[in-house]
Amino acid sequence: MQASHPSYPPSQPAIDLLLPLRRWIDNIELNNPQLAHRICHLIPAQCPFERDVQLFGRTLFHIPPMCKLNPLYEQVVGLRFRAMCYLADVCGEDVSRYC
């Protein structure tokens, strides 16, 4: 005997309002060293907001990286990575200052 399940409406796929912006960032082609340097300089290597709050050498609490709440975080970090790869692979530059 089968248990009866309530009938739910079919789930609708979520509408991603930021999809055009995500695609635009993902499709940015880097072919200018100045632009690649600017991107690497403006986008930090790690989230600047993550903190451990300490008192007398003991950690009271941890503030998580707020960058992860940014809906475009993956695209922005990917753009920075592509800029670094462009500078290293195509331009032959040392990108260690951006790490």
Rank of each mutant, 00 (worst) to 15 (best):
G92D: 09
P9A: 05
L72H: 03
Q54W: 06
Y8H: 14
A83Y: 07
L87I: 14
M66E: 08
P44D: 06
P10F: 05
R23Q: 15
V77M: 07
S7Q: 12
P20T: 04
A3S: 08
D94N: 15
N32P: 01
S7G: 07
H37A: 07
F61R: 05
F61T: 14
G78F: 13
L21H: 07
F49L: 12
F56M: 12
M84H: 12
S4R: 10
P71I: 04
D26C: 11
P65L: 01
H5M: 05
M1D: 07
D52I: 00
R58G: 08
F81K: 15
N32D: 15
L69H: 05
M84I: 15
A3E: 13
D89I: 12
V90E: 13
S96A: 11
V53S: 01
L72G: 01
M1I: 06
V53W: 03
N70W: 00
L17I: 10
G57F: 08
H5K: 04
V77Q: 02
C40D: 08
V53Y: 04
H62A: 08
L87N: 07
H5F: 07
R82Y: 04
Q54P: 01
V76D: 00
L79A: 06
L30V: 14
P71W: 05
S96D: 11
E74M: 10
V53E: 05
H41F: 14
D52A: 07
C47K: 01
Q46F: 13
T59H: 07
R82F: 03
K68P: 00
N27P: 02
A45C: 12
E29F: 05
D26Q: 12
